[in-house]
Amino acid sequence: MQPDKQNANLRIAALVSVGKHPGSGRARRAEQDARAVEMGLAMAPQGLEVLHAGDPHAEALRAYAGMGLKKIRILQQGENADAVPALSQYLGESKPDIVLTGVRAESGESSGMMAYLLGEKLGMPVVTRIAEIVSIDNGQANLLQALPRGQRRALRVPLPFVASVDMAAAAPRQSAFGPASRAEMEAKKADVEVRDEVQASWSEAPARKRPKRLKVVKAKTAADRFKAATAKSSGDGGKVLRDKPASEMAQAVFDLLLEEGVIR
């Protein structure tokens, strides 16, 4: 979307967190947060403020700055502090028109509650998983919400609002090393710092592999269990159709498509 005059006065706050690569576990820019920044840059490059609550020295924040940001505002607080009070207080004062977040963080609890808690605290409506802000007119935003498998739902919501940005949103622009290393990290001690007491009692460990649920067969006899266990494997495996008329083969393919429910 082109930034037009209408959006010139629009003020957007994009909240960013330190992401975590699923493979290496290394800190990076979070994919959804980066999409939120991208959406903000596309909508209102002038009125965008990128906000982080936490450690101002986190290297991963530079990756957001590399998208072409002059500065990132950081509400400095300790590792165990709850980000919501600090952010809600700051946003309550700065009063942006749109607050963009990711759907779920890539590190920490990743509960996905941030947008909702902020919405509740700031008294702003929350829209979930948006893919695009189509337009803004008369103080109302027209949004597209991402649904599974590439489907979209159109929503209309009045400003100001909080929105979580889905992975279906426009991919973030590349982060360039030069601007990233030169951007200003404007750190300020958060006005409120609330220690997350609940979290302190949790124990955290690398994710264990979850066992795949087996097809449980409630059979009363050994013969039934035997049948259930063997029936599947004999039916599986590639079926090869050859030397048959094309219509017959096509029918078999089509039946499978119907069975899988992909023909709508």
Partner: peptide, 20 residues
């Protein structure tokens, strides 16, 4: 593949279009 058709793709696709 779970299901394979050993045939000319054009013919099978024509049939699939008809079926759909």
């Amino acid at each position: 593949a779970a299901l394979s058709c050993i045939a000319d793709s054009g013919e099978v696709m024509a049939e699939l279009i008809r079926l759909a």
